[in-house]
């Protein structure tokens, strides 16, 4: 398997506030990388750097060998290779579902409208949203909106998809439907980087776990089960413990 994404010595700072210090990570084609870590550890910022939504202060990001630079003229071309799904879905509220889906493939990639439409309908059916083409975002539930957002990203045929806490804004009963969609994607061989707080999901979907804390990669492993049972670092252990309740603590 070839290397699809390569991040070397990435640094990101807002003024004096260093958010990411020297991040190195490479992702192979078909790999599912899950990034976990406490709030404010820089994991979402990291994702935003990957498709050039944030300017970086040092290091390099390359996708398929071409550099990702926030202010380069080719950035919109590069971004077509990188799908992104946001926590707050960010569907376009003035367009219905099908127009949300068709806009970028037709206007940006200049693909044939009918062909994309057919593909869009197939994908909608796959995520359980057949027949919702004419609905407007405000008529959909959070979980439905997020599934539309995922389909929207997929239709661009990206080489890698970034998921930024896509279930964090959802009601618990809708989390499952979205996670299910992502699991299916992972099985179909998509390359994904997922930032999430859903530990059980992370455990189920990850080929590799990356644990961030204070802007650094603290632990990184392909031994996913091992990581959740017995993390090597103390910080990861403490972080994982915050997800479990033990009776003794309550007493």
């Amino acid at each position: 398997m070839s290397e699809l994404l390569k991040v070397t010595h990435l640094q990101k700072a807002y003024g004096d506030n260093v958010v990411l210090k020297d991040i190195n990570l490479s992702v192979k084609q078909g790999e599912v990388v899950v990034i976990i870590g406490p709030s404010g550890c820089g994991k979402s910022t990291f994702l935003r750097c990957l498709n050039g939504l944030e300017k970086i202060q040092g290091g390099e990001i390359a996708i398929d060998g071409s550099p990702v630079e926030a202010e380069s003229r080719d950035i919109s071309k590069i971004r077509q290779k990188i799908g992104m799904v946001f926590q707050s879905y960010e569907l376009f509220p003035h367009k219905n579902v099908i127009d949300n889906l068709l806009l970028a493939p037709v206007k940006v990639q200049k693909r044939d409208k009918e062909e994309v439409k057919e593909e869009a309908q197939k994908l909608l059916a796959k995520v359980g949203l057949a027949g919702k083409e004419e609905f407007f975002p405000r008529q959909l539930s959070g979980g439905q909106k997020q599934r539309v957002a995922i389909v929207r990203a997929l239709l661009m045929h990206p080489e890698i998809i970034l998921f930024d806490e896509v279930t964090a804004a959802l009601d618990p009963e809708m989390v499952q439907e979205v996670l299910h969609t992502m699991l299916k994607l992972a099985k179909s061989g998509s390359t994904m980087i997922i930032v999430t707080h859903e530990m059980a999901f992370a455990r189920a979907i990850a080929d590799r776990i990356v644990f961030f804390d204070e802007g650094e990669i603290i632990e990184e492993t392909r031994e996913v089960e091992q990581f959740f049972e017995k993390p090597k670092t103390d910080r990861a252990r403490r972080f994982l413990r915050t997800f479990t309740f033990s009776k003794s603590e309550i007493d």
């Binding site: 946001f86 806009l103 970028a104």
Partner: peptide, 25 residues
């Protein structure tokens, strides 16, 4: 701001973002 970002993430350039996403809203 994230509406802009969501358009950029789909590979739209500035002009397309304003024309298709921002102005209509």
């Amino acid at each position: 701001k994230i509406q802009f970002e969501s358009a950029y993430a789909l590979g739209m350039n500035k002009f397309q973002t304003y024309y298709y996403i921002i102005f209509p809203q």
